[in-house]
Nucleic acid binder design. Structure first.
Lengths: 191, 191
DNA sequence: CGACACATGTAACACGTTACATGATTTG
DNA sequence: CAAATCATGTAACGTGTTACATGTGTCG
């Protein structure tokens, strides 16, 4: 969904062709989320099919297919901007799922998972800080995206620390991978 | 991807059938990310095709198709648990994209977007706090997921506030939707 | 000329959602 | 018995990625 509306927003600024849309999108978000060019074309064709964009007469130079917003497209875009993002819109959080399942999966040391992630996230945070130092002051969009990622990474580190202390005062680290699992449950052991 | 490994992790705990996998997954994550039952079956068939799970002889009751991890499946799962989530793994952040594009889209009041989102996120945060108050102390997985969402929502509010002040000391709120856009740029005006 | 960036598209596949079809078991 | 829940699956579609095919324009 984000791509669909990303393209519509860029077209609201000015009519554009596919290749241009990709570079503008990546410029606006500091190439944080590189946009696959194939997807731009398929998304554009769907937007065209649904009447949200139309081709300006290809009076332009050869090849380039320039698109422009239609009125329904403008309406849809305005709706997107005025409607907040809800929990249902957000994708599953892989990290949260991983840690949540780690605590109940036999043979997995949940605290090791948390610590490894913490190292990776802190490293990422340093990279973000470095990027921010070199960012142009007038590139507001990119600065906002950068800050967004920094805030998120910081909160992730805090959550990981919080999780570690919560795991520290817990019953028992799960038993060893292979041996000693049968004497408690005694389920039917195949082969 | 999270689903694939979610299923593998549950199967590491104990062999299960599809319907059971869905309920266990939702129980572990507090029904935060409801799991579509159709997807469970298609994912299971892919996992089976790729040799990561196998059917235990359907010695079980009629109907129920019970799956069990294979050794390659166990290996793949262990790799998932020991490899941190990187930036590339994460999906695009729709909110960040929305705000970033709002600042450069004519006719869109970026600060209104930020404020509307803030209201929605604070409301969500209250709901999460309410949920946490009623959560069982021993349900560690669900508590971790809840905390994860709380930490994230809090950081989102902080970022929105930060963005608002950044937007407040900015050149000019973009011009009105329709009129008065041509006298500055004088681009070719179609139709 | 040859390499590289620009530009458009298609095919194949993975993943995700919604909706439908089908039947067994449980329970009011 | 009727309705709800349990249980498995498929079809259609949207979205995203990777890879390929094809051609133009530019520059060393």
């Amino acid at each position: 969904m984000s791509i669909k509306y990303g393209l519509l927003a860029l077209l609201e600024r000015e009519p554009m062709y596919g290749y241009q849309l990709r570079s503008e999108f990546e410029r606006s978000t500091g190439a944080t989320w590189p946009l696959n060019i194939g997807q731009v074309y398929t998304t554009l064709s769907r937007l065209h099919r649904d009447g949200l964009v139309e081709e300006t007469g290809e009076s332009d130079e050869q090849g380039k297919v320039v698109y422009r917003l239609t009125d329904p497209g403008r309406t849809d875009l305005a709706r997107w901007f005025t409607t907040p993002v809800t929990q249902d819109d957000r994708p599953r959080d892989e990290l949260a799922i991983k840690v949540a399942l780690a605590v109940t999966t036999p043979g997995v040391d949940a605290r090791a998972v948390v610590q490894a992630q913490r190292t990776a996230t802190v490293r990422h945070l340093q990279e973000l800080t470095r990027l921010k130092a070199g960012a142009a002051e007038e590139d507001i969009a990119w600065l906002l995206v950068l800050d967004s990622m920094i805030f998120r990474a910081e909160s992730e580190v805090r959550w990981l620390d919080h999780s570690e202390t919560r795991l520290a005062r817990m019953p028992r680290p799960p038993v060893r991978p292979a041996a000693a699992a049968a004497e408690t449950t005694t389920q039917e052991v195949p082969r």
